[in-house]
Every structure is written in structure tokens, then in C-alpha cells.
């Protein structure tokens, strides 16, 4: 019973961990390259959650200073994650461009087929 209580108090972290291992699982188990990139972005999303969850203060408002508000959530994780998201989509674009080039060269986006073709040559 106590462990259930612990888990509900850390529900954010539990979901973060779930997203993280789902991302890792997709990267490890799937051979399709676009699926692998999607797995990477799910992993990234879990990192966003990991950063943002501890910054929230119950009863706080978003960190925009205004009259009549005393408690603000922590702005630092927001800054870090904001830039991380945009950089994430930029790197995703580079990855997709690589996949497109690989498809043009090998006619496949499955890792094992590409490897087989490489060994063939």
C-alpha cells in the first residue's frame, strides 16, 4: 500500500521513465529508421518532462512577474527545454535528411536490408 502511495506521488516520474524506456525500446528493437527517429524524439520528450516536473510549484503561476502573485514556478528548466525543443527538431530534420539519402542510395530504410546490401557489394 505504501509503495502505491509513493508511486502516485511520483506519477510524473513514472510516466517520464515509461516514455524513456519506450523510446529506448523503439531504438533498440525496431529496424525501420524513421521509427527509430520517432523513438529518439519520444526519448527527448521524456527528458523535457524530467526537467519540467521538478520546476512546478503547486499554487505557483507561470514565471511572468505580475502584481498580486507571490509564488512563481522555476523558470530555469523552461529556458533549457525551450531551446532543447527547437534544437531537437533541427537535429530530427538532419536525421530525416540522412534517411532520405539512404533510401535513395539503397532503396530501403530498414537497417538490416541496408546492411545486407552493403555486404553484398
Amino acid at each position: 500500500m505504501e509503495i502505491l502511495d509513493q508511486i502516485t506521488r511520483h506519477y510524473n516520474y513514472v510516466i517520464t521513465i515509461f516514455l524513456m524506456i519506450a523510446g529506448v525500446y523503439i531504438v533498440v528493437a525496431k529496424s525501420n529508421m524513421i521509427k527509430t527517429l520517432i523513438g529518439l524524439s519520444i526519448f527527448q520528450a521524456s527528458v523535457y518532462l524530467l526537467y519540467l516536473s521538478p520546476g512546478k510549484i503547486i499554487g505557483g503561476t507561470p514565471p511572468i512577474i505580475g502584481e498580486g502573485y507571490e509564488v512563481y514556478s522555476n523558470p530555469l528548466p523552461h529556458v533549457l527545454i525551450l531551446t532543447a525543443i527547437v534544437v531537437g527538431v533541427a537535429t530530427l530534420a538532419v536525421g530525416l535528411a540522412l534517411v532520405v539519402r539512404i533510401h535513395e542510395a539503397f532503396g530501403s530504410i530498414e537497417e538490416d536490408e541496408v546492411l545486407r546490401e552493403l555486404e553484398h557489394e
Binding site: 523535457y48 519540467l52 516536473s53 520546476g55 514565471p63 511572468i64 514556478s73 527545454i81 525551450l82 525543443i85
Partner: peptide
């Protein structure tokens, strides 16, 4: 939004 990170 729920976590107060409106910009993000």
C-alpha cells in the same frame, strides 16, 4: 501548460 511552462 499544467506544469506552468507556458513558453515551452
Amino acid at each position: 501548460m499544467v506544469l506552468d511552462a507556458v513558453d515551452v
